[in-house]
Measured scan of single mutants.
Amino acid sequence: MGKITFYEDRAFQGRSYECTTDCPNLQPYFSRCNSIRVESGCWMIYERPNYQGHQYFLRRGEYPDYQQWMGLSDSIRSCCLIPP
């Protein structure tokens, strides 16, 4: 099982949303994503809903700024857990 936490502000500040399963639409939970903490598993995150747009592969670790995962913007709208 994986676990990823999205934060609206840099350095793990602001409103957060924790996810443990695939989520095709993160828009209801936060308006922007400036930092991420991957506590377990590997995740693919996407800039648009329904697994569309630019995608980024994240391993376990801390990403205090969206540029840390080579993001082009602070828009993350869907995510899925990559099976081991």
Rank of each mutant, 00 (worst) to 15 (best):
residue 53 G to H: 08
residue 59 R to S: 03
residue 19 C to A: 11
residue 8 E to S: 08
residue 15 R to C: 13
residue 18 E to A: 09
residue 24 P to V: 11
residue 24 P to L: 11
residue 27 Q to K: 13
residue 17 Y to V: 11
residue 50 N to C: 15
residue 75 S to H: 14
residue 19 C to V: 12
residue 1 M to N: 15
residue 46 Y to V: 02
residue 13 Q to K: 15
residue 53 G to P: 13
residue 53 G to L: 09
residue 11 A to F: 11
residue 81 L to D: 09
residue 23 C to N: 04
residue 15 R to W: 06
residue 6 F to A: 00
residue 83 P to T: 03
residue 50 N to G: 05
residue 1 M to I: 02
residue 12 F to H: 04
residue 53 G to C: 03
residue 36 I to G: 05
residue 24 P to G: 09
residue 58 L to S: 01
residue 35 S to I: 00
residue 22 D to C: 01
residue 35 S to M: 00
residue 17 Y to L: 06
residue 5 T to E: 06
residue 3 K to W: 07
residue 53 G to A: 11
residue 13 Q to R: 11
residue 20 T to Y: 05
residue 20 T to N: 04
residue 27 Q to D: 07
residue 16 S to K: 05
residue 75 S to E: 05
residue 7 Y to A: 01
residue 21 T to Y: 07
residue 27 Q to L: 14
residue 2 G to E: 09
residue 48 R to L: 12
residue 25 N to E: 11
residue 7 Y to P: 00
residue 24 P to H: 12
residue 50 N to P: 04
residue 16 S to F: 10
residue 50 N to K: 12
residue 9 D to E: 13
residue 22 D to K: 09
residue 26 L to K: 01
residue 10 R to Y: 15
residue 49 P to M: 13
residue 75 S to D: 06
residue 49 P to V: 13
residue 50 N to Y: 05
residue 76 I to V: 06
residue 18 E to T: 07
residue 24 P to Y: 07
residue 49 P to N: 09
residue 17 Y to Q: 06
residue 14 G to F: 01
residue 10 R to I: 06
residue 15 R to Y: 10
residue 20 T to W: 12
residue 52 Q to T: 07
residue 75 S to P: 09
residue 37 R to L: 00
residue 27 Q to R: 12
residue 77 R to S: 14
residue 35 S to W: 00
residue 48 R to F: 12
residue 13 Q to Y: 10
residue 17 Y to C: 06
residue 50 N to H: 14
residue 22 D to G: 08
residue 36 I to F: 15
residue 10 R to M: 08
residue 2 G to A: 06
residue 10 R to C: 15
residue 17 Y to S: 09
residue 20 T to P: 11
residue 24 P to F: 01
residue 69 W to R: 15
residue 31 S to Y: 03
residue 12 F to L: 06
residue 31 S to A: 07
residue 24 P to M: 08
residue 26 L to V: 13
residue 81 L to M: 10
residue 9 D to M: 13
residue 11 A to G: 11
residue 4 I to F: 01
residue 19 C to G: 11
residue 26 L to C: 08
residue 26 L to T: 09
residue 15 R to D: 07
residue 22 D to S: 05
residue 9 D to F: 12
residue 49 P to Y: 03
residue 6 F to Y: 07
residue 11 A to E: 11
residue 21 T to R: 08
residue 73 S to F: 05
residue 6 F to W: 02
residue 45 I to N: 02
residue 21 T to D: 06
